[in-house]
């Protein structure tokens, strides 16, 4: 898994976009893309699959991003940040509410940095949660396969459950493979033969 954070900036003004790109690049390992035209915005953003979308709070196209957050679900949605001078007070409340929206005053690099840091921290928590979820799912799947393999051995060789598991483990050790892999091979083979 790449540790690089992908940031998409929605900004039509070229100079402002460059200023933000510079500020972001200073903060470290980020992959920055700029979208200059809001035509088909949701599609353009989806193509980049960013971790963070940066858009001015005064940009009416922000509503186009709502679709993205709905399509991807609250956990997976890209973090959207809104840069503005006027609405500063919204920032902290938004962050505290767990909404993926941050508001920064102005476009100065030193103002963007802390927000990016928060975003990175959030991103890492999110990524860890995703990884844990995937791991749990995988473990569950493997348990099911091992149970099925045990059942097959018990039935065909008249073994007790612990004996069946011991046999699976011994085979795995002899062949230098994981128990789950041996179990899967057995289940597949038995499906082919039945």
């Amino acid at each position: 898994m790449s540790g690089k954070l992908t940031v998409v900036i929605v900004e039509q003004n070229r100079d402002r976009a460059i200023a933000i790109v510079d500020a972001l690049t200073e903060t470290g390992d980020v992959d920055v893309r700029v979208i200059g035209s809001v035509s088909g915005l949701a599609k353009q953003i989806a193509r980049h699959d960013p971790d963070i979308v940066l858009i001015d709070i005064d940009n009416p196209s922000r509503d186009m991003l709502e679709e993205l957050t709905m399509a991807s679900g609250p956990l997976e949605r890209p973090v959207a940040m809104f840069v503005s001078g006027a609405a500063g007070g919204l920032a902290r409340s938004a962050v505290e509410a767990g909404v993926s929206a941050y508001v920064v005053d102005g476009l100065k690099a030193e103002r963007i940095k802390p927000v990016i840091d928060i975003a990175i921290a959030r991103f890492q928590i999110l990524r860890q949660m995703r990884a844990e979820l995937a791991e749990t799912r995988r473990a569950l799947e493997e348990r099911k396969v091992i149970d099925r393999a045990k059942g097959l051995l018990m039935k065909s060789k008249g073994l007790q459950e612990d004996e069946a598991y011991a046999l699976l483990r011994k085979t795995a050790m002899n062949r230098n493979r994981r128990v789950a892999d041996v179990a899967e091979a057995l289940v597949t083979a038995s499906e082919l033969l039945s």
Binding site: D58, A87, S93
Partner: peptide, 15 residues
């Protein structure tokens, strides 16, 4: 408000 999402946030966050 510039957008419905901004407007909603202004209300929700007490702006």
């Amino acid at each position: 408000a510039p957008s419905w999402s901004s407007l909603r946030d202004m209300l929700v966050f007490g702006h």
